[in-house]
Nucleic acid binder design. Structure first.
Lengths: 231, 231
DNA sequence: GTCTATAGTCGGATAGAC
DNA sequence: GTCTATCCGACTATAGAC
C-alpha cells in the first residue's frame, strides 16, 4: 500500500508547527475556562490531541504556553480593532474637525468595539483570559495592556478630549473614556447576569444591534451639548 | 492556678463559632485571590489560623466553605445597598413622580453603587468572587444573582423605564440600565487597566468623587431630554 | 473541639524508547 | 518529533490521639 505520509513538498517541519498551533488553540479554551492554575497540562494536551510532553518541549512548560496564548489574544484584538483605529488616526492627523466628524469617529470605534466584544465568537475565549488578568495581573498583563487596551483606550480618550476641548490625558477625560467603554464592556464582563436578565442563553446579532443602537444614541446625547449646533 | 477556660457564661460553643468566622474571612481573601480551584485548604487554614481539618469538620469540605463565603458576599452587598434601595421603593410606591424626583433616585442609586464598588475596602474581595462567578457560574451564582444583583438592577431598570415612559421589562430599558451600571462597573472589572491609565496604584476618595461626578453629569445628560422641562 | 499523621489522588516535568 | 513510563511534589480528606 502506498503510505500517505510521503513528505509534503512544502516543508518537513509541518508536524511540529501543527502541534504548536493546536496547543495554542487548546490554551485559549482551557486557560479561559479554568484559569492558569486551574488548567492542567493533561487537559491542554488532550484538547489539543497531542502528547503531554509536547508542552514542555515546545513552550518550555505550562507557563510558556500561557504567555504565547496571551500574545495570541493581544494580536487577535489588535487585528480586529485595527481598521477603526487606523481610520481614526488618519482623520485625526488632518486638521481641525467638526463636532460631527469627531462624533462619527467615536461612534465607529464604539460600534466596532461592541461588535468584537459581544458578537464575535473568538473573543468569548479571549475575554475570559483578559478578565482574569485584570483581577490578578501576571507578567502577561503587560502584553495585553500595552498593545490592545491602550490602542482602543487612547483613541477613545483623544476623541472625547477633542469633543470636550480638553487634553486627552486629563484624568476627567480618561474617566469619561472609561465610562464609554464600560457601557459596552459590561455586557461581556457581567455576561451571565445580562443574559439572565434579558432572558436568553446567548447574544445574537439582534442583541448586538440593540446594544449598539443604545450606545450610539447615548453617546450622541452625551456630546450633543454644543449649544444650538444641531446636525 | 485557675484555668482560663472556665466556661464563659454565655455559650460553650464560642470557640467553634470563632473558627467558623475566621474561615469565612479567610475564604473571602483566598477564594477571591486564587479562585475556587486555585485556593488550597492549606492556604485557607493558614490564613484563618485554624487547623486544616476544621474545614471538612465545619463546612463539609472546601466546597461547602465556598458556598457560605458566597452567601456572605451576597449578604454584604445587600446590606450596603439596602438604604438606597428601600428609599427608592418607598418613593416609587407613592404616585406619579416628577422627572427630577426620578432622576434624584437614580443619582442616589448610582452614587451608592459607585461608593460601594470602587471606594470601600471589603468589596475589593467580593468583586473578585463575583467576577469569577460571572465567567464560570457555579451553583453559587444563583445566590449572587437572585439577591444582590437583581436588587440593584431591577431598581435601575424601573427608574430608567419611568424616566423614558416605558415598562421596566422592555429589553431596550434593560440594556440602558445595564449600560448605566457598566459605566461604574468598568472601574472595578477593568480595575488594573484603569489604575494604570490614571497612573495610580489604588483608588482613593478623590477618584471615587471624580467618577461619581462624571456619572452624575452623564446621567443627567442622558435623561435631560424632556423638551423644555428644566429643573 | 482540635490536632498530627497518613492515605489516596492528581499535578507538572522528565528520561529514554521509537 | 512523538510517545510511554515514571518521579516527585502538592493536594483533599480522613483516622485516631489528645
Amino acid at each position: 500500500m502506498s503510505k500517505t505520509n510521503d513528505r509534503p513538498k512544502a516543508r518537513t517541519d509541518t508536524r511540529g508547527e501543527e502541534t504548536r498551533r493546536r496547543l495554542i488553540e487548546a490554551g485559549l479554551d482551557v486557560f479561559g475556562l479554568y484559569s492558569f492554575e486551574g488548567a492542567t497540562t493533561r487537559m491542554l494536551a488532550d484538547r489539543a490531541g497531542v502528547n503531554l510532553a509536547a508542552i514542555p518541549y515546545y513552550f518550555d512548560g505550562k507557563e510558556g504556553l500561557y504567555r504565547v496564548v496571551v500574545e495570541h489574544v493581544a494580536a487577535g484584538i489588535g487585528e480586529r480593532m485595527l481598521p477603526a483605529v487606523e481610520r481614526i488616526d488618519a482623520v485625526l492627523a488632518n486638521d481641525e474637525l467638526s463636532h460631527g466628524q469627531l462624533l462619527d469617529l467615536l461612534h465607529g470605534l464604539l460600534e466596532r468595539f461592541a461588535a468584537m466584544l459581544i458578537g464575535s465568537k473568538e473573543p468569548e475565549k479571549w475575554a475570559r483570559i483578559i478578565i482574569r488578568e485584570q483581577m490578578q495581573p501576571t507578567e502577561a498583563f503587560d502584553i495585553l495592556y500595552r498593545s490592545p487596551m491602550r490602542l482602543i483606550l487612547d483613541r477613545c480618550a483623544v476623541l472625547v478630549g477633542r469633543l470636550l476641548g480638553r487634553p486627552a490625558d486629563d484624568p476627567d477625560i480618561l474617566i469619561r473614556a472609561f465610562t464609554l467603554l464600560g457601557q459596552i464592556l459590561v455586557f461581556r464582563m457581567a455576561r451571565e447576569a445580562a443574559l439572565r436578565t434579558l432572558g436568553c442563553h446567548q447574544f445574537d446579532d439582534s442583541h448586538v444591534a440593540a446594544i449598539q443602537a443604545v450606545v450610539r444614541e447615548q453617546t450622541e446625547r452625551l456630546f450633543a451639548s454644543d449649544p444650538g449646533g444641531g446636525s
